[in-house]
Structures are given as C-alpha cells and as structure tokens.
C-alpha cells in the first residue's frame, strides 16, 4: 500500500545534496538568524501540517471510492471471499428487505447462500452491479466515512430470465491501521424487474426478499421500506451542501419529462 518514499529517505538524500551543491549559499549561523527563523519555521510547519491533512483527506476519499468500486467488481463475479475481505470484523450487510447480517463470517455465509452455495458464477449467469454516484463524507477525525452510491444492475440466467435492477446504498467505512474497510453496507432495492415490460408493467420480482427465509438474518429488516411499485426515499447521511430552498407552494401537477 506504500505509495510514497519515506520522509527519512528524502531527508538523507536532501542533506547530502544540499551539503555539497553550493556551500557558499549557506550563511554563517548567527543567533539573530536563528531567532528570526524559529518564528517562521513554526508557521511554515503549521501550514505544512494543515496541507498534509487536507491532502490526506482527498486520498482517503479516493481510497474509499476505489474500495467500493472494487466491491462492485467482486460482486459482479460472485467472488465472495474477495468481497468479504473488504469488510471489518464487525461489519454489517443489509440488502433490500432481507434483514441484517453481522460479522464477517455471517456475511460470508449469507453471500454463499445468495450464490447458491458456491463462489463464482455459473455459465449463463449475469450479475453486473455498476457502482455509480459516490457522495463520500469523511468524519472530522478522518477515521470513518459514509458514502451514498447507486447501483444499476443487469441480472440474468441465460434461457430463463433477464432483469433490470437499481437502488441506492448508504454505506459506512472505517480506517484501520491505515487501511480503509467497509463497516456497513445498506442497499435499498428500488426495483428488480423482468426485462420484458420493465418497471412499467412489472412489480418487483422478489419484493426485496432474497434468501432470508432459508437463512434467517441476525436482525430482521431495520426499516419499513416496501418494494416497487411502492416508492421510498432512503435517508441521506449528508445535509444539502448549499442549503434548501423553501418554496411558497408545494407545486402543481407535473407533466413529466
């Protein structure tokens, strides 16, 4: 995971280079100079520290995006062991209306049940889960984060059925020993409908219930969201970044796009 050269390495190289590059440029040490620079140095160091923290937060956010996208690529291929390795020991997973599974081992077992007892797809299975629209919010201390995402799903069994799916995530992440991990996955199923007729003519194929009847969850569904054509708004982990506008009326009947 190391991407940067250790500072000590720089320091050594730097000291060597500066020492011989241009000795005449080095002023003689005087007590006045040291006093001036002591003030300046503390200010420089403070600004530098602030910058390092800000750069670290951008990298954290990028790392979290890579993590969730890696999750998506593993999910596409039903690579459960790889996927479970992205979680913390006490992570939770709750898909649609299937209830909540807690801890890596339970999550692994749940995923294997979802996969029909095996890892990897069978011939004829399609399981694309595109991970889109990240809104990442890092905690002040930089050690945890929340992320909203949306998945588009192309699901299918050749010769049997093809389905469109879609739904948002509200997930959580923690940084442990410098490595970001997923601590909570909550995926809300907006639709999972047959290809023919799509969401216009079909109700949700499974009402958001996958395998919880044969493999009961640790906690039953933690909210009361239903399934298509019922609609719902999963809560946002973030406030409006600019500020909500308060309209005088609730609006008129729309004509749609």
């Amino acid at each position: 995971m190391m991407r940067f050269i250790p500072t000590t390495f720089y320091l050594t190289a730097l000291t060597l280079l500066v020492a011989c590059s241009d000795q005449s440029a080095m002023p003689e040490a005087g007590s006045e100079l040291v006093a001036d620079k002591a003030i300046e140095l503390s200010e420089l160091q403070a600004r530098l520290n602030a910058l390092q923290a800000r750069a670290g937060r951008i990298k954290d956010s990028n790392d979290i995006k890579r993590l969730q996208r890696a999750y998506g690529y593993y999910l596409d291929e039903a690579l459960w062991d790889e996927l479970v390795d992205l979680f913390t020991e006490d992570a939770t997973v709750e898909y649609a209306r299937d209830g909540l599974y807690r801890g890596k081992n339970r999550i692994r077992d749940y995923l294997y049940v979802l996969g029909g007892g095996q890892q990897g797809l069978n011939e004829g299975q399609l399981n694309e889960h595109y991970q889109l629209m990240p809104v990442i919010t890092l905690a002040e201390d930089g050690l945890s984060a929340k992320g909203r995402w949306r998945a588009i799903i192309l699901n299918g069994d050749f010769g049997e059925v093809a389905m469109w799916g879609e739904g948002p995530y509200e997930n959580e992440y923690v940084k442990q020993e410098g490595v970001w991990k997923i601590s909570k996955v909550r995926w809300y199923q907006t639709i999972l409908v047959p290809y023919e007729g799509g969401w216009g003519l079909n109700e949700d194929v499974n009402k958001g219930i996958y395998v919880s009847s044969e493999f009961p969850p640790d906690v039953s569904q933690t909210d009361d969201f239903g399934s298509w054509p019922e609609t719902f708004l999963p809560p946002f982990h973030f406030d409006n970044p600019v500020g909500r506008y308060e309209s005088p009326t609730s609006g008129t009947e729309g004509e749609g796009l």
Partner: peptide, 21 residues
Amino acid sequence: QTEAELELIRIAGEIAGLELE
C-alpha cells in the same frame, strides 16, 4: 549546519514529499 538550517532542510523535504503526493 546550524539547527535552524537543518530545520529548514527538513521542512523542504516534507514539502517535496507533499508535492509528490
């Protein structure tokens, strides 16, 4: 080098590390 000079060099090193990042 004086202590202050070395401090400056150390900070320059940190700056270079940050620039790479």
